[in-house]
Deep mutational scan, measured.
Amino acid sequence: AITFRFEGQEKAKKFYEKLMRQNLEATIHIHGDEVHVTVH
Rank of each mutant, 00 (worst) to 15 (best):
A1W: 15
A1R: 12
A1Q: 12
I2H: 08
I2P: 09
I2D: 03
I2E: 05
T3K: 05
T3S: 05
T3W: 11
T3A: 04
T3Q: 04
T3R: 07
F4P: 06
F4A: 09
F4D: 09
F4S: 08
R5L: 12
R5S: 11
F6A: 02
F6M: 02
F6D: 04
F6I: 04
F6H: 01
F6W: 02
E7N: 11
E7R: 11
E7T: 11
E7I: 13
E7A: 13
G8H: 13
G8L: 11
G8W: 07
G8A: 11
Q9G: 06
Q9N: 10
Q9H: 13
Q9A: 13
Q9D: 08
E10R: 04
E10Q: 06
E10S: 07
E10L: 06
E10A: 08
K11V: 11
K11Y: 08
K11G: 10
K11T: 12
K11M: 13
K11D: 14
K11N: 10
A12H: 01
A12S: 02
A12L: 03
K13N: 10
K13D: 05
K13L: 15
F15W: 04
F15M: 03
F15D: 01
F15S: 00
F15L: 03
F15K: 01
F15Y: 03
Y16T: 03
Y16N: 00
Y16Q: 03
E17I: 07
E17L: 07
K18H: 13
K18F: 15
K18M: 14
K18G: 07
K18R: 10
K18N: 10
L19A: 05
L19I: 08
L19C: 14
L19W: 02
L19S: 01
M20I: 13
M20A: 04
M20T: 07
M20H: 03
M20P: 01
M20F: 04
M20E: 03
M20S: 04
M20K: 11
R21S: 12
R21D: 07
R21F: 09
R21A: 14
R21N: 09
R21H: 06
R21W: 05
R21M: 11
R21G: 08
Q22Y: 12
Q22G: 06
Q22P: 01
Q22L: 15
N23P: 02
N23K: 08
L24T: 05
L24S: 03
L24I: 14
L24R: 06
E25N: 14
E25Q: 14
E25A: 13
E25F: 13
E25M: 14
E25R: 12
A26K: 01
A26Q: 01
A26S: 03
A26F: 12
T27F: 09
T27C: 05
T27E: 10
T27L: 04
T27R: 06
T27H: 08
I28P: 00
I28A: 02
I28V: 05
I28Y: 05
I28G: 00
I28N: 00
H29W: 10
H29F: 10
H29M: 09
H29L: 09
H29Y: 13
H29G: 03
H29T: 14
I30P: 03
I30V: 09
I30H: 08
H31F: 13
H31Q: 10
H31G: 02
H31R: 08
H31P: 00
G32V: 05
G32T: 03
G32S: 04
D33W: 08
D33V: 10
D33P: 05
D33F: 11
D33R: 10
E34D: 04
E34I: 13
E34K: 06
E34F: 13
E34M: 11
V35F: 10
V35D: 00
V35S: 02
V35N: 01
V35K: 00
H36G: 01
H36R: 06
H36L: 12
H36N: 03
H36P: 00
H36T: 12
H36V: 10
V37M: 02
V37T: 00
V37A: 00
V37D: 00
T38A: 04
V39K: 03
V39F: 12
V39W: 09
V39D: 01
V39N: 02
V39A: 03
H40Y: 14
H40A: 09
H40M: 11
H40L: 13
H40F: 14
